[in-house]
Design a protein around this nucleic acid. Structure first.
Lengths: 185, 185
DNA sequence: TAGTGAAATTATCTTTTGCTAATTTTTGTC
DNA sequence: GACAAAAATTAGCAAAAGATAATTTCACTA
């Protein structure tokens, strides 16, 4: 666990140090500018993180859902304030773990470090796949892949968030959907 | 070191187990389909990795240059054959290290695992920044950021490779360059 | 230095996206 | 179930990107 997220069960021993946290849908969990030195496990619900552009638009970068571990990389790795906002998209149940504690426990616990390494690697693979898709695929293909690979998740999330996730405007995603629907006929 | 790349000097002890490898510009280093279970340190030169699309186009995903450690994530993490090709863009000097050896040395060496974790984290930050830029910026802005942040590197690489790195065609990059040049006047 | 092949630019045309605003649909709440 | 607010769709137009091909520039080598 720890790096940023990704399903993984080998971290469960850490949960004994966790504090439960409940959030209602649409609540802001972590505001921009905070140095958030906790990691959290999502027991239930979906969250998104987004940037606010100069013109005030919210651009969603990631979704995280039940079973995943999340950390804010810039806070955890670099002790920097986050430039992103985290928001619950559904009622959520989280388990928070203080990251300084994780660091301390990792000090001489090789299996914990290995678990962290594994998670970092998984997250890296995920991020690289995403980069790949931006280079290789058109927005339309990215949307189709998303439908294919994460159907349950995208059903639970508003299209406008999906749109920025694949790098287009909501209007453009709507046109993509229309094109795809007409092609099927 | 180990996960995929990124400048880092704490790995240097591992270099005692490394084998030198020299390559001429344009040589293919790692062909698609290979399970490449080595990591390598770049002493000199630049390499790129690319995918070949169904229509035969080469799409460059990454550049790696002197001072960086590289590994093929799908080979190292998942023991899968790589879908990418690695090619030297300049005459290169590499130092190769067998990954099974790294695994063995890591077994009970907490500082080596920590080094691997650090590198994985750095690479993750890099990949996430890239994702961010695809979501937040237009191709033109990605190109400008690249010029700003990696001027020495992009001077050494052909524009057509830069183009796919930022997610556009070479023709489109050429138009972007023209637009930017005319705006400066 | 002349010649060759690759890379970059330009041109033309089509497709897609962005932007803005209007309209329709959906969602949530009283 | 009615109403209000948000989300999604649609429309119209401008800007940017893709595809293809022709032309110019650049780089390497004989």
């Amino acid at each position: 666990m720890i790096e940023d997220s990704i399903e993984n069960n080998t971290h469960l021993p850490l949960l004994q140090f966790a504090t439960p946290k409940v959030m209602a849908a649409s609540e802001i969990y972590i505001p921009e500018g905070k140095i958030f030195k906790k990691i959290f496990y999502i027991k239930k619900g979906i969250l998104r993180n987004f940037f606010v552009t100069k013109s005030g638009e919210e651009k969603t970068i990631f979704f995280r859902w039940e079973g995943q571990i999340v950390a804010i990389p810039e806070c955890i790795f670099d002790n920097q304030p986050t430039r992103q906002t985290w928001q619950a998209l559904e009622d959520c149940e989280l388990m928070e773990i203080d990251f300084d504690l994780v660091e301390k426990l990792s000090e001489n616990n090789i299996s914990l470090i290995k678990t962290r390494l594994e998670l970092a690697q998984k997250m890296l693979l995920e991020a690289l796949k995403r980069v790949e898709s931006f280079v290789l695929d058109k927005p339309e293909e990215r949307y189709q892949k998303l439908i294919r690979e994460k159907p349950e998740i995208i059903k639970r999330v508003a299209d406008k968030h999906i749109a920025s996730f694949i790098g287009v405007t909501p209007v453009s995603l709507s046109r993509i959907r229309k094109r795809l629907a007409s092609q099927k006929k």
